[in-house]
């Protein structure tokens, strides 16, 4: 049996990269669209305040709500990033199985 650490590492990295390439665009798309919505909402709040339609206290409360919602979005981006990383790790671990079994010539793992 000849197992090459470099070959194994290459297979793992390729598998991990493949998963990240597949998943990352949807994470980025979500983050970008939510950032735009957040910016629009902030502009709305500022405009209402500038026009005198809402008091400072009301503006502060609306801004607090917006901060909470922006944080919720960032947490989702974090969660989706972790899920993508998880898939990449599991793909890399799966690649080890393939390489090892090929090297030994039978399903060792």
């Amino acid at each position: 049996m000849s197992l090459d650490a470099g070959q194994l590492a290459t297979a793992m990295i390729a598998a991990a990269k493949g998963q990240l390439k597949k998943k990352w665009p949807s994470v980025r798309e979500y983050a970008e669209s939510e950032a735009r919505k957040t910016a629009e909402t902030l502009v709305m709040i500022e405009r209402l305040s500038a026009l005198g339609k809402i008091s400072k206290e009301e503006a502060d409360l609306l801004l607090q709500m917006q901060r909470n919602s922006a944080n919720a979005v960032l947490l989702t981006v974090k969660g989706m990033g972790l899920l993508a990383a998880e898939e990449a790790i599991n793909a890399a671990v799966g690649a080890v199985k393939t390489v090892v079994n090929k090297a030994v010539g039978f399903a060792l793992i």
């Binding site: 629009e40 909402t41 209402l48 609306l62 909470n68 919602s69 919720a72």
Partner: peptide, 8 residues
């Protein structure tokens, strides 16, 4: 903005 933040 209230609805937008809650929806978001």
């Amino acid at each position: 903005p209230v609805r937008r933040t809650l929806d978001q």
